[in-house]
Design a protein around this nucleic acid. Structure first.
Length: 809
DNA sequence: TGCTAAACTTAGGACTCCTACT
DNA sequence: AGTAGGAGTCCTAAGTTTAGCA
């Protein structure tokens, strides 16, 4: 795909070069501040770079420059001798696998058929663990600084605050008001004063299913505690069909045994309607002659016909793949006749579908209403499941319809037939004791399983890549929400130790081992530029895209000198979705020298980091911090940037629209950092032009109004009467009003222009800790609806509910 | 222990719906 | 009432990470 993705635009951000490095702060100042006259992206780097320099300086204060440089250089000579092209030599062998082992053990237990007994054991274990943890915490609270160590896992440790057992039996049903946990504390930050309160609070245990009855019975004796009284309104079950009012899952305990649910019931997927053959009057022509196709071949032909005015159909690979797969669906007579795609004429079919969609648009209100209702009915029936006593929305409950594969970028498989999924292809996952979904009449499922270690309800294997597709829950669900929350907690833990990690990789730039230097430089890129990890991909199966670890020589250029800056690295590569990443970054000399070294004796197609891959990198990261992986840096840097930018850009005296503009700009800074681009809307130029016209009109109005004002003033001066004075006032007001309107238009234009090819949604949805935004809204009195739409509010309900004004990421 | 499969998150584009204007 | 344009939703591909297996 030839998409143009340059950042042409200068973002006219408020420039403020001030670096706020308060002496007391222990936070990383990963700030994006200077947006002056440069691409936002580059200045971000610059600034970030600055941060690193600060760090470097402090390091160097205790060290010896010359000595270090010498080491580095002599080191680099060493490398030449053991440089290999072969990535697979030189692997790290002694990786700690503690965590993994633990988890394995857990899941073994959890898998046991004898749930109750193994669970008992589990619970015991868990209890022990929690107790232990609590003790640790207690100790920590009493330590003088009251701060936690970075290895403390906030997510897990919140549990330990709430160790109180519960009986697992008397659960409040949702309409009961649970005692809300204190909100003025961060859930996962542990402050001494809070601890007490939290300990007094009761924690509700996740509700059990009715169907889990025996199990609950069994638990009952063990779990009973003083806590019972708090939860004691439970017991009666809410009517099943009654819609679940917002359930605050975030106030409940999480599973700690690796299981994802206890009970799961759903209706299975919705299949697309079967193929409806075309009416006889719609004909397909081959080599100018009408030809009736067999239903199978016809269906595939319609897939192509529908795409006729899409760019895909102009691409050779697409056409070739389509034709090959199409022929497979033909009867032998058809196959022998139809041998060239370019002799195929699909235009009647194409017109037919266009007419159909036109007709759909022209449908009467009633008809549309009917369709809407039908969709709603399907949603109600299939769009929800019951998971652990709560009705939860399913994300994608429809099976993907057949069609032609639309791979992105230069995908070698584009145009291939994505075949229709049948019930026999489908694996159902639900609990044993649930009412299993019924396959359509006369069919059967491939399998029904009961695996509560996974979150999916339905899966099937797709035929293009042979990968598995899943039906899972909506982002508003507990299961997705908890994970999301956890993700941000991990990023916040990184915040606590990121300085240490940076110091470490800077140190590693001088290592005498090549693999370590490569690792360190890659990590630097990931941290500084928010690059993705960059897994290896199967060549020929997917588009050629890269991430950090898979960068090749051809993707990078070293400029000792560029635009008045030293040591500039120019990166230009296709990233995820074949979106171009283009950036010029000044780096530290040591990085630059290392890169030169990595590039020695290599060709364009060779890997830049030939001794590194994502698994090596992640193993290393795991050792630096529990739960740390490459993508955590993206989350961390995105969120911290938002927080920083909001601080920077929000002026107290701004009105709400101006505040929102600031928010959008902060958001935009993140989107630029993460390289979230979009194709400029097709109508962009036009709508921009329209807006400009409006602005011009306003301008005319304004000058007219000004003229009038002037005249009125002159009159008033001459006449000195009340009437003319009043006229002056009126005119003044008019001028003011108009210039305000003008200003608004201009702001809008700026915002839109700046946003031309930047997509804000992705970062908002996936990288920015929602609590930052909630806090900001509260602080400045901006309604949350201005920042998050309904869906987003549902997804981030946990954050909206639990965050208060002084949350800090 | 190294590789592959599975599971789950992140991503941009297509499509649909709503709204503010004509 | 009709429509353009943008917001919101849906869709599913393309990543990352984890789990599982030989």
């Amino acid at each position: 795909m030839n998409r143009e993705f340059f950042f042409k635009r200068k973002l006219r951000m408020r420039s403020s070069a001030t670096v706020r490095l308060s002496s007391t702060t222990k936070l990383c100042h990963h700030s994006v501040t200077a947006f002056k006259d440069s691409f936002i992206i580059s200045s971000y780097y610059l600034h970030h770079h600055h941060h690193h320099i600060l760090h470097l300086q402090s390091l160097d204060m205790s060290g010896d420059h010359a000595h270090k440089r010498h080491q580095m250089q002599s080191g680099s000579e060493d490398y030449n001798s053991h440089k290999h092209k072969d990535k697979h030599k030189d692997r790290e062998h002694n990786h700690k696998e503690h965590k993994r082992d633990k988890e394995r053990e857990n899941s073994k237990n959890g898998n046991s058929e004898h749930r109750s007994s193994s669970e008992k054991k589990h619970r015991e274990k868990e209890k022990e663990r929690l107790k232990h943890k609590e003790k640790q915490k207690e100790e920590m609270f009493h330590s003088s600084d009251g701060k936690y160590r970075d290895k403390e896992n906030g997510f897990v440790s919140s549990l330990s605050i709430k160790v109180e057992e519960d009986n697992g039996y008397h659960h409040p049903i949702k309409h009961e008001k649970p005692v809300k946990r204190e909100r003025d504390e961060d859930e996962y930050e542990h402050k001494p004063k809070k601890l007490k309160m939290d300990n007094e609070k009761k924690v509700k245990k996740r509700k059990q299913e009715d169907s889990d009855y025996e199990e609950r019975e069994e638990k009952k004796p063990k779990k009973r505690t003083k806590e019972v009284k708090k939860d004691s309104t439970g017991g009666k079950k809410k009517a099943k069909n009654e819609p679940e009012e917002k359930w605050k899952w975030w106030e409940e305990e999480k599973y700690t045994d690796g299981s994802k649910w206890r009970f799961l019931e759903h209706k299975g997927p919705v299949f697309p309607p079967p193929y409806e053959p075309l009416p006889d009057r719609i004909r397909f022509y081959y080599d100018g002659k009408a030809m009736k196709l067999s239903p199978g071949a016809e269906e595939v032909a319609t897939f192509y016909a529908k795409m006729l005015d899409h760019e895909y159909t102009t691409k050779d690979i697409f056409r070739k793949n389509f034709f090959k797969d199409w022929r497979k669906e033909m009867r032998s007579e058809e196959k022998s006749k139809i041998t060239e795609l370019k002799k195929c004429d699909f235009t009647e079919m194409h017109e037919y579908f266009k007419a159909q969609s036109e007709a759909r648009k022209q449908m009467s209100k009633e008809e549309k209403q009917k369709i809407k209702e039908e969709n709603e009915r399907i949603l109600q029936e299939y769009g929800y499941c019951v998971m652990d006593n709560h009705k939860e929305r399913i994300g994608n409950f429809r099976i993907e319809p057949p069609g032609l594969f639309r791979g992105r970028g230069d995908h070698p498989k584009m145009g291939k037939l994505k075949r229709r999924i049948r019930p026999e292809d489908i694996i159902i996952n639900c609990s044993k004791d649930s009412v299993h979904p019924k396959p359509p009449p006369g069919t059967r499922w491939k399998e029904v399983r009961h695996d509560n270690k996974v979150t999916w309800l339905v899966s099937w294997t797709e035929n293009i890549q042979g990968s598995i597709k899943y039906i899972m829950l909506n982002p508003s669900s507990r299961i997705k929400g908890e994970k999301d929350w956890q993700k941000y907690e991990t990023a916040r833990r990184l915040k606590k130790c990121v300085e240490r990690i940076r110091a470490q990789y800077r140190e590693d730039w001088r290592s005498k081992e090549m693999r370590i230097r490569q690792r360190a430089v890659a990590l630097y890129f990931i941290d500084k530029l928010a690059l993705r990890a960059g897994n290896e991909k199967d060549e020929g199966e997917t588009a050629d895209t890269v991430g950090c670890c898979s960068l090749r020589v051809e993707h990078i250029r070293l400029r000792p000198q560029m635009d008045g800056q030293d040591y500039v690295v120019e990166l230009d590569f296709p990233g995820k979705d074949s979106i171009r990443y283009y950036n010029k970054v000044p780096v530290e000399k040591r990085v630059f020298k290392n890169l030169q070294l990595f590039l020695e004796n290599k060709q364009g197609k060779d890997d830049l980091f030939d001794r590194l891959n994502t698994s090596i990198l992640n193993k290393h990261l795991q050792e630096l911090m529990d739960g740390l992986t490459a993508k955590v840096f993206r989350t961390y840097n995105a969120s911290i940037t938002l927080q920083q930018q909001l601080k920077e850009l929000t002026s107290p005296d701004d009105n709400i629209p101006e505040k929102i503009l600031s928010y959008n700009r902060a958001n935009r800074a993140v989107a630029v950092l993460c390289n979230h681009q979009r194709a400029p809307p097709k109508t962009f130029e036009k709508s921009m032009h329209n807006l400009q016209t409006k602005i011009d009109e306003k301008n005319k109005q304004l000058s007219a109004a000004k003229k009038e004002l002037k005249a009125a003033k002159a009159d008033a001066k001459m006449l000195h009467d009340e009437k003319s004075k009043k006229a002056v006032e009126t005119k003044k007001k008019a001028v003011q009003r108009i210039s305000e309107q003008l200003m608004k238009l201009e702001v809008q234009a700026t915002d839109r222009e700046e946003n031309k090819q930047i997509a804000l949604g992705t970062s908002k949805l996936n990288y920015l800790d929602p609590r930052i935004s909630v806090t900001w809204c509260k602080k400045w009195g901006v309604p949350i609806e201005k920042i998050y739409n309904k869906t987003q509010r549902e997804k981030f309900a946990w954050a909206i509910d639990m965050t208060d004004e002084d949350f800090e990421f």
